[in-house]
Amino acid sequence: MSIKKDNNWEPRILAFCCNWCTYTGADLAGLNRMKYPENVRVIRVPCSSKVNPQFVLRAFQKGADGVLVCGCHPGDCHYSTGNYFTRRRFMLLQRLLEYNGIDPKRFQAKWISGSEAAKFRDTVAEVSAQIKALGPNNKFVGAHYDNTVMEKEAEGGKD
């Protein structure tokens, strides 16, 4: 089996959004009929501090091209201090991923409040454009998801 290079390739971007700020902001973007790329999928979590760094690794492993973690601005956390932990956890994870060869644009974190619908739209559009420019992620991806590996197999294999 071979997978053809797709010119209409759309990245697969995962966004963890906290229920109280960013998810509300994303809903507000909808309410205001703002437009942004389709390639972002939101996973709702109660607080950005619920997001385990292992979820991010898992997303890359399963073939996500980009991961976004969004929460309330520091000081505004619905649970008062959750996002301060988020901040430490993901500053370290971002560096560790970069160190392991993942472009830091592929993993980003942003504070987006419930009223910042435009910021949500802009962030999504920006991240989407950045990742489109980077192309598909083939790092950390399981071999059966890895297009390049498959292509190589196809070249050398029968059909």
């Binding site: 109660p46 607080c47 501090s49 619920k50 760094p53 649970y79 201090t81």
Partner: peptide, 10 residues
């Protein structure tokens, strides 16, 4: 507990 899940990731 208010259900934020901060402890989960720790």
């Amino acid at each position: 507990c208010q259900g934020c899940g901060c402890c989960n990731a720790a």
